[in-house]
Design a binder for these strands. Structure first.
Lengths: 138, 138
DNA sequence: TTCGGTGCAAACGCTTTGCAAAAGG
DNA sequence: CCTTTTGCAAAGCGTTTGCACCGAA
């Protein structure tokens, strides 16, 4: 199996299935759903059960290696590597295509909350609308 | 039944169940899940099947009366009235409490996308972290 | 009277869980 | 070896769907 670029996190057993999941996320330029990862493993001739993929993803999320994103108007959760420069996405309401955003509004923004003393650990931003193809088709 | 503040949208049949759903959302200061709305109807002594609540919510979303939000690390969708000044929320990763945000970073932000000609129709922002109670308990 | 809405039940799809067998350290 | 992880099956749970009856206009 190809070697993973990320250093293997301490305290996590290095199994074939887990390495494979991490590798797929590293090589993807967009967030992936559990089922996508599952079938990509099968396509590569390897094997890992869907439940294993889910358990692995949960584990990685807990260790902060990857992020879980809940895209609106979609029932599935998608996962992406927690890279240093985090990204946001625009979703097409019609074809559900995901487009990367280059900048992030939160870098110079100070959120005011109704409750004080909230310890902010991160944020999620999602833009929705119609992509080039879907605007022209209508 | 108490009268709803929102003008009833044209082209939608005014049924008891739909008025009830809208009323509950109007009187709520936080987004609600379908099941919450369902049981609140029951608590008030009225009746509407869960599937009816879902169909009503879908209808309202399509008409732009309410918004559907998918909170991260939660499997359920929540709904809120589409008020003029839209809001964002902070979610506690520990107790899942939802706290309102008063300002919005997107008012003076120009997103740069990898694909041009994306027609932006809206956005969703979510902050996550630990609320006051959960920070102190740890 | 007509057509859409609702009650109801059953299906659906993503995700989780329980348990014995397998594998990592 | 001993503990964690995996394969596998089955359940869980929010949500959707199909259909006959009902009710708003």
């Amino acid at each position: 199996m190809k070697k993973s670029l990320t250093d293997w996190p301490i305290g996590i057993k290095k199994t074939n299935q887990r390495q494979k999941v991490l590798l797929i996320l590293e090589n993807s330029d967009k967030p992936l759903g559990a089922t996508e990862i599952f079938s990509q493993i099968a396509d590569d001739g390897d094997s890992a059960w869907l439940s294993t993929v889910y358990r692995t993803l949960d584990l990685f999320v807990k260790h902060g290696i990857i992020n879980k994103i809940n895209v609106m108007n979609s029932e599935i959760a998608i996962y992406e590597l927690n890279r240093l420069n985090h990204k946001h996405y625009a979703v097409c309401l019609n074809c559900h295509k995901i487009i990367s955003m280059i900048n992030c509004p939160m870098t110079e923004f100070d959120p005011k909350l109704e409750e004080s003393d909230f310890q902010i650990m991160g944020h999620n931003l999602e833009i929705y609308g119609l992509c080039k193809d879907c605007t022209s088709k209508k």
